[in-house]
Amino acid sequence: MVSIIDYGMGNVASVQKALNFLNVKSVITNDHSVIKDSSVILLPGVGSFAQGMENLNERNLVNLLTEEVMIKQKPFLGICLGMQLIMENGHEPYECKGLGWIEGEVQKFELLDLNIPHMGWNNIKVFNKKYFNNLDNSNFYFIHSYHVKTTNYQDVAATVNYGIDVVASVQKGNIFATQFHPEKSQAAGLLLLKTFFDLNA
């Protein structure tokens, strides 16, 4: 069973719909015992970093998720804000500590010539094929104003060029996360999710 973490930051229905399509059993929850009993943790999210952390804190989820993912080493999938929150620090709208599972921080795009937010379909460049087999150069749907900067380049699974190369996906041990929305990226997104859950669920 996959726990899709419900912390009031939107987007949960689309994620579950994609999992249903793939016949992956999931539950949208913030119930501690349900999360502890699940085999995979999925953290989705739309919204600002600080609000996201506040909502996790309000539900006492920070320590619980850290224990499930970092100590019990359960497979983890973070999507969009769910990828950003696993970093050490964010700046949206003010500086704020994150879950800190991956070294690095989340920064605002500082681009003179390009539109912000970065919104639309872009090809990614794959560095770690574990989940991206057959997906190098595929199009995924991005929608974000802030981007992740990892301290260690080995943690970067894919990048996307938007004026500069930015992190599109991170992977480290049991942790996998995407800045783009696989659940909104039609065939390529569904294939990525299928690969992740085939290997982990």
Binding site: G10, V46, G47, E92, M119
Partner: peptide, 8 residues
């Protein structure tokens, strides 16, 4: 915007 982010 403060709640859900610009992108929303």
């Amino acid at each position: 915007v403060a709640f859900y982010g610009s992108q929303c």
